[in-house]
Design a protein around this nucleic acid. Structure first.
Lengths: 107, 107
DNA sequence: TGCGCCCCTCTACGGCACGTAGTACTACCC
DNA sequence: GGGTAGTACTACGTGCCGTAGAGGGGCGCA
Protein backbone atom coordinates (compact mmCIF):
# COMPACT_ATOMS: atom_id res chain seq x y z
CA UNK A 1 0.00 0.00 0.00
CA UNK A 2 2.12 2.89 1.13
CA UNK A 3 4.98 0.86 -0.23
CA UNK A 4 3.93 1.97 -3.68
CA UNK A 5 3.98 5.45 -2.38
CA UNK A 6 7.25 5.55 -0.57
CA UNK A 7 8.81 4.06 -3.66
CA UNK A 8 8.52 6.92 -6.10
CA UNK A 9 9.80 9.93 -4.27
CA UNK A 10 8.34 12.83 -6.24
CA UNK A 11 4.87 14.18 -5.75
CA UNK A 12 2.07 13.12 -8.07
CA UNK A 13 -1.71 12.94 -8.53
CA UNK A 14 -3.89 10.16 -9.88
CA UNK A 15 -1.19 9.17 -12.28
CA UNK A 16 -0.32 6.97 -9.33
CA UNK A 17 -2.99 4.75 -10.72
CA UNK A 18 -1.10 4.50 -13.95
CA UNK A 19 2.13 3.72 -12.16
CA UNK A 20 0.63 0.59 -10.71
CA UNK A 21 -0.84 -1.16 -13.66
CA UNK A 22 0.20 -4.59 -12.45
CA UNK A 23 -2.84 -4.83 -10.22
CA UNK A 24 -5.51 -3.25 -12.28
CA UNK A 25 -7.37 -1.23 -9.74
CA UNK A 26 -10.36 0.96 -10.32
CA UNK A 27 -9.38 4.63 -10.31
CA UNK A 28 -11.61 5.25 -7.35
CA UNK A 29 -9.75 2.62 -5.38
CA UNK A 30 -6.50 4.50 -5.74
CA UNK A 31 -8.23 7.72 -4.80
CA UNK A 32 -9.78 6.24 -1.72
CA UNK A 33 -6.49 4.84 -0.54
CA UNK A 34 -4.64 8.10 -1.10
CA UNK A 35 -7.43 9.96 0.61
CA UNK A 36 -7.35 7.70 3.63
CA UNK A 37 -3.58 7.91 3.86
CA UNK A 38 -3.68 11.68 3.78
CA UNK A 39 -6.45 11.69 6.35
CA UNK A 40 -4.17 9.74 8.63
CA UNK A 41 -1.32 12.12 8.10
CA UNK A 42 0.93 9.90 6.03
CA UNK A 43 0.43 12.03 2.95
CA UNK A 44 0.07 15.72 2.31
CA UNK A 45 -2.17 16.91 -0.49
CA UNK A 46 -2.22 20.15 -2.36
CA UNK A 47 -4.66 21.37 -4.98
CA UNK A 48 -3.64 21.36 -8.60
CA UNK A 49 -6.57 22.53 -10.67
CA UNK A 50 -9.41 20.26 -9.75
CA UNK A 51 -7.07 17.42 -8.91
CA UNK A 52 -5.07 16.72 -5.78
CA UNK A 53 -1.39 16.26 -5.70
CA UNK A 54 -0.13 13.90 -3.03
CA UNK A 55 3.21 13.91 -1.33
CA UNK A 56 4.64 11.83 1.47
CA UNK A 57 4.39 13.71 4.74
CA UNK A 58 7.65 12.23 5.93
CA UNK A 59 10.61 10.69 4.23
CA UNK A 60 10.67 6.94 4.31
CA UNK A 61 13.66 6.94 6.61
CA UNK A 62 11.97 9.30 9.02
CA UNK A 63 9.01 6.99 9.09
CA UNK A 64 11.19 3.96 9.72
CA UNK A 65 13.00 5.76 12.51
CA UNK A 66 9.69 6.66 14.03
CA UNK A 67 8.61 3.04 13.94
CA UNK A 68 11.84 1.95 15.57
CA UNK A 69 11.48 4.47 18.36
CA UNK A 70 7.91 3.40 18.82
CA UNK A 71 9.02 -0.20 19.20
CA UNK A 72 11.60 0.93 21.68
CA UNK A 73 8.87 2.55 23.72
CA UNK A 74 7.26 -0.81 24.24
CA UNK A 75 9.99 -2.06 26.45
CA UNK A 76 10.33 -1.37 30.12
CA UNK A 77 14.08 -1.41 29.88
CA UNK A 78 15.21 0.75 26.99
CA UNK A 79 18.83 0.25 27.77
CA UNK A 80 18.59 -3.54 27.56
CA UNK A 81 16.59 -3.35 24.36
CA UNK A 82 19.09 -0.99 22.77
CA UNK A 83 21.97 -3.19 23.75
CA UNK A 84 20.25 -6.18 22.30
CA UNK A 85 19.47 -4.28 19.15
CA UNK A 86 23.09 -3.30 18.75
CA UNK A 87 24.01 -6.95 19.01
CA UNK A 88 21.36 -8.00 16.56
CA UNK A 89 22.34 -5.88 13.60
CA UNK A 90 24.90 -7.21 11.17
CA UNK A 91 28.54 -6.30 11.44
CA UNK A 92 28.49 -3.79 8.63
CA UNK A 93 25.39 -2.17 10.04
CA UNK A 94 27.01 -1.98 13.44
CA UNK A 95 29.81 -0.11 11.72
CA UNK A 96 27.34 2.35 10.24
CA UNK A 97 25.78 2.93 13.63
CA UNK A 98 29.18 3.39 15.17
CA UNK A 99 30.11 5.99 12.62
CA UNK A 100 26.87 7.88 13.03
CA UNK A 101 27.32 7.95 16.79
CA UNK A 102 30.88 9.09 16.38
CA UNK A 103 29.80 12.06 14.31
CA UNK A 104 27.20 12.91 16.87
CA UNK A 105 29.78 12.98 19.58
CA UNK A 106 31.95 15.37 17.69
CA UNK A 107 29.35 18.04 17.67
CA UNK B 1 -3.19 -7.01 25.57
CA UNK B 2 0.22 -8.62 25.49
CA UNK B 3 1.29 -5.72 27.61
CA UNK B 4 -0.29 -7.45 30.54
CA UNK B 5 1.65 -10.47 29.64
CA UNK B 6 5.07 -9.06 29.04
CA UNK B 7 4.74 -7.32 32.37
CA UNK B 8 4.91 -10.23 34.77
CA UNK B 9 7.86 -12.24 33.68
CA UNK B 10 7.22 -15.63 35.24
CA UNK B 11 5.03 -18.26 33.74
CA UNK B 12 1.46 -18.64 34.95
CA UNK B 13 -1.96 -20.02 34.13
CA UNK B 14 -5.41 -18.49 34.46
CA UNK B 15 -4.33 -16.68 37.55
CA UNK B 16 -3.51 -14.10 34.92
CA UNK B 17 -7.17 -13.31 35.18
CA UNK B 18 -6.73 -12.54 38.83
CA UNK B 19 -3.73 -10.35 38.16
CA UNK B 20 -5.82 -8.02 36.07
CA UNK B 21 -8.76 -7.23 38.26
CA UNK B 22 -8.89 -3.60 37.20
CA UNK B 23 -10.87 -4.47 34.10
CA UNK B 24 -13.15 -7.20 35.30
CA UNK B 25 -13.05 -9.62 32.42
CA UNK B 26 -14.85 -12.90 32.17
CA UNK B 27 -12.47 -15.79 32.78
CA UNK B 28 -13.16 -17.10 29.31
CA UNK B 29 -12.06 -13.80 27.84
CA UNK B 30 -8.63 -14.15 29.35
CA UNK B 31 -8.44 -17.73 28.15
CA UNK B 32 -9.39 -16.83 24.63
CA UNK B 33 -6.81 -14.09 24.47
CA UNK B 34 -4.05 -16.31 25.82
CA UNK B 35 -5.09 -19.04 23.45
CA UNK B 36 -4.99 -16.73 20.45
CA UNK B 37 -1.62 -15.35 21.49
CA UNK B 38 -0.16 -18.81 21.81
CA UNK B 39 -1.67 -19.77 18.48
CA UNK B 40 0.20 -16.88 16.94
CA UNK B 41 3.43 -17.91 18.53
CA UNK B 42 3.76 -15.12 21.05
CA UNK B 43 3.21 -17.48 23.94
CA UNK B 44 4.21 -21.05 24.68
CA UNK B 45 1.90 -23.25 26.68
CA UNK B 46 2.63 -26.36 28.65
CA UNK B 47 0.23 -28.68 30.44
CA UNK B 48 -0.05 -28.51 34.19
CA UNK B 49 -2.70 -30.95 35.30
CA UNK B 50 -5.80 -30.01 33.40
CA UNK B 51 -4.71 -26.39 33.14
CA UNK B 52 -2.34 -24.69 30.75
CA UNK B 53 0.63 -22.73 31.82
CA UNK B 54 1.56 -19.88 29.51
CA UNK B 55 4.96 -18.40 29.02
CA UNK B 56 6.22 -15.69 26.72
CA UNK B 57 7.85 -17.25 23.69
CA UNK B 58 10.39 -14.46 23.60
CA UNK B 59 11.67 -11.99 26.09
CA UNK B 60 10.20 -8.57 25.79
CA UNK B 61 13.48 -7.14 24.66
CA UNK B 62 13.85 -9.78 22.00
CA UNK B 63 10.41 -8.89 20.76
CA UNK B 64 11.21 -5.20 20.71
CA UNK B 65 14.43 -5.86 18.84
CA UNK B 66 12.53 -7.92 16.35
CA UNK B 67 10.08 -5.08 15.81
CA UNK B 68 12.91 -2.64 15.31
CA UNK B 69 14.61 -4.86 12.77
CA UNK B 70 11.29 -5.32 11.04
CA UNK B 71 10.88 -1.56 10.79
CA UNK B 72 14.39 -1.35 9.43
CA UNK B 73 13.45 -3.80 6.71
CA UNK B 74 10.87 -1.37 5.41
CA UNK B 75 13.43 1.05 4.19
CA UNK B 76 15.25 0.85 0.93
CA UNK B 77 18.33 2.41 2.42
CA UNK B 78 19.17 0.68 5.69
CA UNK B 79 22.28 2.69 6.16
CA UNK B 80 20.46 6.01 5.96
CA UNK B 81 17.75 4.79 8.29
CA UNK B 82 20.27 3.55 10.84
CA UNK B 83 22.14 6.81 10.73
CA UNK B 84 18.96 8.70 11.25
CA UNK B 85 17.99 6.45 14.07
CA UNK B 86 21.32 7.01 15.79
CA UNK B 87 20.69 10.73 15.57
CA UNK B 88 17.17 10.40 16.86
CA UNK B 89 17.85 8.64 20.15
CA UNK B 90 18.61 10.71 23.19
CA UNK B 91 22.14 11.42 24.29
CA UNK B 92 22.18 8.90 27.09
CA UNK B 93 20.74 6.27 24.82
CA UNK B 94 23.35 7.03 22.23
CA UNK B 95 25.89 6.36 24.94
CA UNK B 96 24.32 2.99 25.65
CA UNK B 97 24.41 2.10 22.00
CA UNK B 98 27.99 3.20 21.77
CA UNK B 99 28.99 1.03 24.67
CA UNK B 100 27.16 -1.99 23.31
CA UNK B 101 28.87 -1.57 19.96
CA UNK B 102 32.20 -1.17 21.66
CA UNK B 103 31.81 -4.47 23.44
CA UNK B 104 30.84 -6.12 20.22
CA UNK B 105 33.96 -4.90 18.59
CA UNK B 106 36.15 -6.33 21.28
CA UNK B 107 35.07 -9.84 20.61
C1' DT C 1 -24.35 25.96 -25.62
C1' DG C 2 -24.54 21.52 -24.90
C1' DC C 3 -22.16 16.89 -24.46
C1' DG C 4 -18.74 14.09 -22.80
C1' DC C 5 -14.83 13.30 -19.97
C1' DC C 6 -12.15 13.57 -16.00
C1' DC C 7 -11.64 13.98 -11.27
C1' DC C 8 -13.70 14.46 -6.93
C1' DT C 9 -16.63 13.01 -2.71
C1' DC C 10 -19.61 9.84 -0.40
C1' DT C 11 -21.08 5.45 0.53
C1' DA C 12 -20.70 0.44 0.63
C1' DC C 13 -19.35 -4.32 1.03
C1' DG C 14 -16.56 -8.38 2.18
C1' DG C 15 -12.74 -9.93 5.01
C1' DC C 16 -10.02 -10.11 8.93
C1' DA C 17 -8.27 -9.22 13.62
C1' DC C 18 -9.41 -8.07 18.14
C1' DG C 19 -11.81 -7.59 22.53
C1' DT C 20 -15.27 -9.63 24.84
C1' DA C 21 -18.05 -13.35 26.30
C1' DG C 22 -21.44 -17.47 26.52
C1' DT C 23 -22.18 -22.47 26.26
C1' DA C 24 -21.02 -26.98 26.72
C1' DC C 25 -17.82 -30.75 28.13
C1' DT C 26 -14.75 -32.83 31.57
C1' DA C 27 -12.14 -33.89 35.57
C1' DC C 28 -11.35 -33.44 40.33
C1' DC C 29 -12.58 -33.03 45.28
C1' DC C 30 -15.52 -33.69 49.11
C1' DG D 1 -23.14 -37.42 42.93
C1' DG D 2 -22.86 -32.44 43.01
C1' DG D 3 -20.12 -28.28 43.11
C1' DT D 4 -16.01 -26.12 41.19
C1' DA D 5 -12.53 -25.15 38.02
C1' DG D 6 -10.61 -25.48 33.90
C1' DT D 7 -10.95 -26.39 28.91
C1' DA D 8 -12.61 -26.07 23.82
C1' DC D 9 -15.68 -24.19 20.60
C1' DT D 10 -18.50 -20.59 18.89
C1' DA D 11 -20.25 -15.93 18.54
C1' DC D 12 -20.95 -10.97 18.24
C1' DG D 13 -19.75 -6.11 17.74
C1' DT D 14 -16.38 -2.94 16.02
C1' DG D 15 -12.89 -1.00 13.42
C1' DC D 16 -9.57 -1.05 9.61
C1' DC D 17 -8.39 -2.23 5.00
C1' DG D 18 -8.77 -3.25 0.14
C1' DT D 19 -11.79 -2.66 -3.30
C1' DA D 20 -15.20 -0.33 -5.84
C1' DG D 21 -19.73 2.00 -7.52
C1' DA D 22 -22.84 6.08 -7.81
C1' DG D 23 -23.33 10.71 -8.25
C1' DG D 24 -21.80 15.70 -8.76
C1' DG D 25 -19.26 19.38 -10.94
C1' DG D 26 -15.88 21.76 -13.96
C1' DC D 27 -13.56 22.15 -18.54
C1' DG D 28 -12.96 21.79 -23.28
C1' DC D 29 -14.33 21.03 -27.83
C1' DA D 30 -17.73 20.75 -31.51
Amino acid sequence: MDILWAQSAPLTAREVGRLIQDRDLAPTTVMTVLDRLSRKGFLNRTRDGRAWRYEPAESRDAYVTELMLEALDLTGDRSAALTRFAQAVSGSEAEILRRALMELEEQ
